[in-house]
Amino acid sequence: MSIHVAITRRVRAGCEAEFQQALREFFSTSFAHSGVMGASLLVPPPGSDAREYGILRTFRNEEERDAFYDSPMFKTWDERARTMTEGEPVYRRLDGLEAWFRSPGPPPPRWKMALLTWLAVWPVSMIVSALLAPLFGQLVPKFIFAGVVAGGIVIVLTWAAMPLLVRIARPWLHGSRPQPDKPGDR
Rank of each mutant, 00 (worst) to 15 (best):
M1P: 14
H4W: 09
V5N: 00
A6Y: 01
T8G: 00
V11L: 13
R12D: 03
C15G: 06
C15I: 04
C15N: 10
E16W: 12
E16R: 04
A17C: 03
A17Q: 14
Q20K: 14
Q20M: 12
Q20L: 15
L23Q: 09
R24L: 10
F26T: 01
S28D: 15
T29H: 07
F31W: 05
V36P: 01
V36K: 03
M37I: 08
M37T: 12
G38Q: 05
A39L: 09
S40P: 01
L41C: 07
L42Y: 04
V43Q: 09
P45L: 13
G47I: 08
A50W: 10
R51A: 13
E52M: 05
E52Y: 05
I55R: 04
I55M: 10
I55E: 03
L56Q: 08
R57Y: 13
T58P: 02
E62I: 12
E63T: 13
R65G: 00
Y69V: 04
K75M: 12
K75G: 04
T76F: 00
T76C: 00
W77H: 11
W77T: 02
W77F: 14
E79S: 14
R82S: 15
M84Q: 10
E86C: 07
Y91T: 10
R92G: 01
R92L: 11
L94M: 15
G96Y: 12
L97T: 12
E98G: 00
E98I: 06
W100I: 04
S103L: 03
P106Q: 13
P107L: 14
P107F: 11
P108C: 04
P109L: 05
P109T: 06
W111S: 15
W111C: 13
L115V: 11
L115K: 03
L119T: 08
L119S: 11
W122H: 07
V124D: 00
V124W: 02
M126I: 11
V128K: 01
S129A: 15
A130H: 08
P134D: 06
L135K: 04
L135C: 07
G137V: 11
G137L: 06
L139K: 11
V140C: 08
V140S: 08
K142R: 14
A146C: 14
G147K: 07
V149T: 13
V149C: 08
I153W: 00
V154C: 09
T158K: 13
W159K: 11
A161K: 01
M162D: 01
M162C: 03
P163T: 02
P163W: 05
L164P: 02
L164G: 02
L165W: 08
V166I: 05
I168A: 12
R170Y: 07
R170L: 04
P171M: 05
W172N: 02
